Amino acid sequence: AFSSEQLARLKREFNENRYLTERRRQQLSSELGLNEAQIKIWFQNKRA
């Protein structure tokens, strides 16, 4: 489960760009304390 802070950040990123570069995913992973797979799957689900 994502914290409300993490979700807000993911939604902001998604609004700016529906697709993440690998580098951006790595940055978000480290900033949010999530693993890259969690972020990747969140974006895939959000696009679906």
Rank of each mutant, 00 (worst) to 15 (best):
E5H: 09
R23A: 15
I41P: 00
Q27Y: 08
A8L: 09
W42D: 02
S3L: 04
G33Y: 03
S4Q: 13
K40E: 15
E16R: 09
R18E: 10
K11L: 15
I41V: 08
Q44M: 08
R24T: 06
E5G: 08
A1D: 12
K46Q: 15
E5I: 07
S29P: 02
G33M: 06
E5L: 07
L7E: 12
R23E: 15
N15R: 10
L28W: 01
R47I: 14
R25E: 07
E31H: 03
L7Q: 06
Y19W: 11
K46I: 09
F43R: 00
S30C: 11
A1V: 12
R47T: 10
R18P: 15
A8G: 06
F14P: 01
E13N: 02
N17P: 02
R12E: 13
W42H: 02
I39N: 01
G33C: 08
F43G: 00
A8T: 07
L20V: 05
E22W: 07
Q44A: 12
N17R: 07
F2P: 05
Q6P: 00
N15L: 11
I41E: 15
N17E: 04
F43W: 15
N35I: 06
E13Q: 03
S3P: 02
Y19I: 11
K40G: 11
R12V: 09
N45G: 07
Q38V: 14
S4H: 12
W42I: 04
S3H: 04
E13I: 05
Y19M: 08
I39W: 03
Q26G: 07
R9P: 00
E13C: 06
S29N: 01
I41R: 12
W42G: 01
N45E: 14
L32Q: 00
L34N: 00
E5A: 11
K46R: 14
E5P: 04
T21F: 02
A37C: 14
N35A: 13
S4I: 12
R25M: 15
Q26R: 13
A1S: 13
L7I: 11
T21K: 04
I41T: 10
S4G: 09
Y19K: 07
A48H: 11
L20T: 03
R9L: 06
R47C: 13
N15P: 01
S29M: 06
E22K: 15
E16W: 06
E22I: 11
R23S: 14
R9E: 06
F43S: 00
Q6F: 02
R47G: 07
E31M: 05
L32F: 03
R24K: 11
E36V: 10
R12K: 14
A8E: 14
N35V: 05
L7W: 03
A8D: 11
Q26V: 10
Q44I: 07
Q6I: 11
R9G: 07
F14D: 01
S30A: 14
E13K: 02
Q44F: 08
E5V: 08
R23D: 14
R9F: 06
Q38A: 12
K11Q: 15
L7P: 00
L20D: 13
Q44T: 08
R47F: 12
S29I: 05
Y19T: 08
R25C: 15
L28M: 04
R12S: 10
L20S: 02
Q27W: 09
Q6V: 11
G33V: 03
R24V: 08
I39C: 03
E36I: 08
L10N: 00
E5R: 05
R9I: 11
N17A: 04
